[in-house]
Amino acid sequence: MNDAIVEIAMLVTFVLMALWAVLATKLLRAVVALAATSVLVTLLLFRLDSPLAAVFELSVCAGLVSAIFLGAITLTQPENEAEVAVSAKERIRRYWYLPPLLLLLGVALLQVALPDVPTTAAAADDVRKVLWTSRHLDLLGQITVLVAGAFGVIVLFKEARKNER
């Protein structure tokens, strides 16, 4: 019973953190909220018997991603907060129909998803074994993605040298 309450609390906090990330007026706070969301996801992953993914989530999402965002924020002009608020209001007025639409999409999913939930107990198939036997093509994909990311950094971040033709 206690376990369930802890889990419910974590879920609620997860949603609240996401809302905070969205509602924060200062960009920096939004990024912090995003990191906090990540931390909660990490905790939830631990609860779901997935320690390796949790570690990844913590290190990459809460760590690396926040760092990238902070870099982006420092490298760009600070926002004009009043203008942000005005334009946000204007856009919210224009896209008033979106939340119901999205919720409809979500509910449509829930409707079919919920009736037949299988309740098999957690069986332990080892993630390392899975990764190296049946999903090693994905690992190859990961390597390629990382190489592509490296080129992204080279092409997009590096300043063009002035004397280059």
């Binding site: 093509l137 994905d138 997009l156």
Partner: peptide, 17 residues
Amino acid sequence: FFSLYVFLEVTAIASFI
């Protein structure tokens, strides 16, 4: 299906850049 997603994403990232 999932590997398909991964490799399509590889192609897509290359295309963005």
